[in-house]
Design a protein around this nucleic acid. Structure first.
Lengths: 244, 244
DNA sequence: AATTAATGTGTCATCAGTACATATTTATTA
DNA sequence: TAATAAATATGTACTGATGACACATTAATT
């Protein structure tokens, strides 16, 4: 091969390597929600990009060619939290041109629900921490937008499906459950109406135990009926405008 | 530069050009819904891949590095239908490893709503046609899955937001509207209850005109109130579990 | 003028959503 | 040990949405 031929080949490969359609990277970003101290929290890490010094970012990574989207999400969760049996749901893709300072990266956002107390993370370094959702201001990239979008989706989901229990321990009191709904929805609920509504759903099983670590009258403990325990909830059928 | 150096560079570039993370292509696929002859239809094209000879596929294309996701979707719509002022909404990404026979392609699905009658397409060739949603059997790639997912999303949306009107002409009768709901939801609705429910929503304006092309007693015509006419509907706020 | 086929409307029963108050139980304190 | 404080547990009445259901009216057709 002559030098000229090599130079041509070089140019050609460079052209291919920058070929438009393969010049976009794809990542997955996980919004990992947890619940602690009566607050909805999200797991964030200090951004490693100079542009975003001192800002926090979601946990994410580029997708590998040999893994599908969910596999990539589970990998990130496993790497960062040590957990692999968690609730996970895709929300949507974010792809504005300018969202990543280092190049074109389209990201697909997932949200995940974790019981903080019973799955102590290996928080390897203090750059990775739980942050109360309500106190988060600036974030790296467009991650604040992604977080807000995922929170909105979570709010929608907890109204329709029994997914909220992924944030709670196996056994919980109705007060804890109500406080969690309040934290997610950002509203105060009336106790009597809340209990009526929950009992209508028929999701819970009375396990005939009481709280024992509270400094007041203990409440009954419940758990989610097994038939509703699914890590990945599939959408239900279409609600009918009216059945005739 | 010596030949050896060039050879090294060549190898390096080849490595980069096949670098895992840039070896995934990204496309957009549009599920374009229309309504005609009391049927919900979708715009499909004959697949150009040998593997999928005689199967239909959605309209899609690879995303260009200089366009964001919505731009790519609008481009596809414009190219294929000639329209650019249409309702469009992202549904979700599909990324299984085996979904595309020619390589790894992750696709982001959008659905779009079009008034067939008043936007005559340039159906350039007879490979591109409207197909009744209920009669579609096999499709190329995972496009049947994408179609079903988008239909489910549409069904969800029409229950909550005034998006259905993007499928109808400016003026329509309540019968036409009801038939469209029935076609989308796949149910029969009671006329009296349907009208009650629609009137409560307060979406419609009585324009004091009557149908004139029907072989029976003509019904009143309505149009969507201008404040609800948005091509891209943004999600409403979270429904409260209960306001206290 | 009679017939046909659609439009247009109201009532009643049921159920979900919401506002609201009192008795009971346990831990704590005096 | 008794009194107090703070939480649990529960029911009723009002309002509005949902869903089943029947009859009079209008226009085109015969």
């Amino acid at each position: 091969m002559t030098e000229k031929e090599l130079r041509l080949k070089t140019a050609e490969i460079e052209k291919i390597s920058h070929l438009d359609y393969f010049n976009i990277a794809i990542s997955v970003d996980c919004v990992i929600f947890g619940y602690e101290d009566k607050e909805l929290k999200v797991l964030l890490i200090k951004s490693d990009l100079e542009e975003f010094a001192d800002l926090y970012s979601l946990l994410g990574d580029l997708i590998r060619p040999d893994e599908d989207l969910e596999t990539a999400s589970y990998r990130i969760l496993k790497e960062r939290t040590g957990l692999d049996d968690v609730y996970l749901e895709q929300v949507q893709a974010f792809g504005s041109i300018e969202r990543h300072p280092s190049g074109r990266v389209i990201t697909i956002a997932y949200y995940s629900l974790i019981d903080i107390k019973h799955h102590k993370l290996k928080l390897s370094h203090n750059e990775l921490n739980w942050h109360p959702v309500n106190e988060i201001r600036g974030m790296a990239f467009d991650h604040k937008l992604i977080l807000d979008t995922c929170l909105a989706r979570l709010q929608q989901q907890v109204m329709e499906h029994p997914v909220i229990f992924n944030l709670l321990p196996e056994k919980f009191s109705l007060r804890e459950l109500q406080e969690l709904y309040e934290a997610i929805l950002g509203v105060e609920l009336d106790r009597r109406n809340f209990r009526k509504k929950i009992s209508i759903k028929d999701w819970l099983e009375d396990i005939d135990e009481m709280e024992n670590d509270v400094p007041h009258r203990p409440g009954k403990l419940y758990k989610l009926k097994p038939e509703f325990k699914k890590k990945a909830i599939r959408k239900k059928g279409t609600p009918a405008l009216q059945s005739s």
